[in-house]
Design a protein around this nucleic acid. Structure first.
Lengths: 226, 226
DNA sequence: CCATAGCATTAGGCCGGCCTAAATCAGAGA
DNA sequence: TCTCTGATTTAGGCCGGCCTAATGCTATGG
């Protein structure tokens, strides 16, 4: 139970980020899932969890799981902010592609100062989303919510804007980029095949057939870019 | 004696950089000086030196000192390149001052990829010196030599160009910047007081009196900017 | 030529962060 | 209710990287 913060280690930062991802909205993250996400053994996670709960960064209910405390959540959001701003900066100013930027940001997020992060944010014009459309938490930890739903669920005939794309598969990102299906692009849903079949969309004059799985991870929202 | 390279740790990178600084031209760096520079205890250095010599990165003559091998020297120069390019980038594109940029670069140099470093270099137009005028080693480890001598030694009446300024004292950097005495600026030596006294210079129409100590760490060269 | 000062090294310990092996728990199904 | 399986935790160990205390070397100057 440590009220104030000595600087967190790289490892601790990674744990917090992982737990943040794995425990949305007051749910618990399991040791196993954390271990899997960080590619560590379960006992390593058990050990670190003990230390983090002593630091007051999370709450651990043995054999049940783990949940971030408010300080832990803020620390995690701080890392998410860094990561996404760094990604946005590298793509915009240093020629990175949205499919290759992740690992670089993963290392830099532990090394940059708050000052540098904020300068990058300023250089970018304080964006609210990274190149994949993932929302960037504000410096105070508030998270811009953007309403979106899977392309797979859009009714036939409707025109929507791509908002966000799952970033976990570089290969998939390359494919989507080749099709021009990136956040900000407006698409019209022309057709849907039954029983979880593919959808046909039109974007910038081109037609594309998108498999059901892919259409699940492309998130869209009301077209409202003015 | 490890022929090829697993990635070096942050600590190892810092040791190599320190030893590089402390052992110019085939001279030996002492345990004590390394410890002092890195703010570590002497036994810690002894221990690390043993490991680094087993890795083939340096040669250790007990009770005499330490010298980088060729692989060690290249690794050190790689870090120096990174550091100076990062400094140049942060000053040019992210609003850092030459007096504040050092600590940021000190952390980033361990985190950036070769790719990112080279992209920064390209964005800068492949500079040969950092904001303090320190030469940037090429990617192959070759170091651009730039001939320069202390402002203190310039004959009265001569006009020279500022090439390089010792970067170790932020306060001094701020003072020099306030006077406009930064690399690239052309100055004329108007007067020198005897017995190691101050010199008077003119730069951009202003006259400044520069103490002897300061005039030692401001390095100048032939004016040849065309 | 020897004493001593000062630097260097060895000895031994601590902490963060990881591991494997062994023990323990909880929940599902018989 | 009991058993078994899979997840979790505890036990114990290793390595990198640091420390202090104790020991050892070397070179200088008396």
């Amino acid at each position: 139970m440590n009220a104030t913060a000595d600087p967190l280690t790289r490892s601790v930062e990674d744990y917090l980020k992982a737990i943040y991802r794995l425990s949305p909205e007051g749910r618990f993250a399991s040791t196993r899932d954390i271990a899997h996400l960080l590619e560590l053994s379960a006992p390593s996670v058990s050990g670190m969890v003990k230390r983090l709960s002593e630091l007051g960064l999370l709450e651990h209910i043995p054999y049940k799981g783990v949940q971030l405390t408010e300080p832990g959540r803020l620390a995690a959001l701080r890392m998410v902010r860094r990561h996404r701003l760094i990604e946005a900066y590298l793509v915009r100013f240093l020629g990175y592609g949205w499919d290759t930027v992740h690992p670089e940001a993963e290392r830099l997020e532990h090394a940059v100062s708050d000052t540098l992060v904020e300068r990058m944010a300023a250089a970018l014009g304080h964006p609210v989303a990274d190149p994949h459309g993932d929302p960037i938490p504000a410096a105070d930890g508030s998270l811009p919510e953007l309403a979106c739903s899977p392309l797979a669920d859009v009714p036939v005939g409707e025109t929507v804007e791509i908002r966000r794309v799952d970033e976990s598969e570089p290969e998939r990102l390359r494919y989507l980029a080749a099709l021009g299906l990136v956040p900000g692009v407006v698409v019209t849903l022309l057709d849907r095949h039954p029983f979880g079949g593919p959808v046909t969309v039109e974007a910038a004059g081109d037609r594309h057939i998108i498999g059901a799985e892919l259409a699940q991870v492309v998130l869209v929202g009301e077209r409202e870019t003015q």
